[in-house]
Design a protein around this nucleic acid. Structure first.
Lengths: 133, 133
DNA sequence: TCTTGACCTTCCAGTGGCTGGAACCCTTAG
DNA sequence: CTAAGGGTTCCAGCCACTGGAAGGTCAAGA
């Protein structure tokens, strides 16, 4: 399988696949003209990484998950730990974003949004007032 | 005022302040030994940017907000538009993160997390099953 | 006077995870 | 023969900083 087909079937762009090879996720063979040849297992690996990335795992976490996946002896507790830690981080981000959104929607509500120059949003940015923080 | 004091009073690291000068946010004067000298207005500007950044506005948005802030003729509607657009983006991110979290917590619940190798989390990453998507 | 240490300066490189582009090679169809 | 559509490498850029090296400046203390 050439890189184009793998890209299509895995949903991961060719550029990214080459990058993943660079950082050691894959080691596709080459044929005599230098083209990468992918096996089904490599496609499978890529799909795995793609799903993990879409769940927000970073590259190093993907590496760890992949290693655990390929280690048939591992228990599931290691995986669970990684996932739980990741959920914590996601929840922290969600909390941050919600705080931002709430502050902003508050300010937006207070802002007339017309031709007049008074603007609680700018006032808040300027002097930190108009919104408890 | 030297950069160190500005950093302390604004809560923005010196490195970042120099970077902000690089990208044209500030134009502090220099004294004869080459040190930057900051006025109160520059400190104020930095604090403004810091607050905008902490609300998740990116650099270009900060630039726009600053320009609007310094334009005494502007109406508040431009500011409101920027802020509303920004809230939309934040909400999209929140939705993404919540979807991730929900998928993950689902998988975590299903994962025994013990010495046994069965792991719904890895199964899902591997074959996309075990969780509606 | 000398030294120490805390400042300050510039410049270069790295972060994460790609992504775009240039310049080139290979294969197949018309 | 040519053109299109693969493939290859390598280098640069994105965002918003951040770290570090190498050096200049200044005030206080021995």
């Amino acid at each position: 399988m050439n890189i184009g087909e793998v890209a299509e079937r895995s949903g991961i762009p060719t550029k990214t696949i080459r990058y993943y090879e660079d950082i050691g996720f894959l080691h596709p063979k080459r044929n005599e003209n230098g083209y990468r040849i992918f096996e089904e297992t490599e496609l499978h690996k890529l799909t795995f990484i793609g799903r993990a990335r879409s769940l927000g795992f970073n590259i190093e976490e993907c590496r760890a998950l992949l290693a655990l996946y390929e280690d048939k002896e591992r228990g599931s507790s290691d995986v669970k730990k990684i996932a739980q830690q990741h959920v914590k981080e996601i929840e922290a981000k969600i909390a941050d974003l919600i705080a931002m959104r709430d502050t902003l929607t508050h300010l937006i509500t207070a802002c007339a949004g017309d031709h007049r120059p008074d603007c609680p949003i700018l006032d808040n940015l300027s002097n930190g007032k108009g919104e408890p923080r």
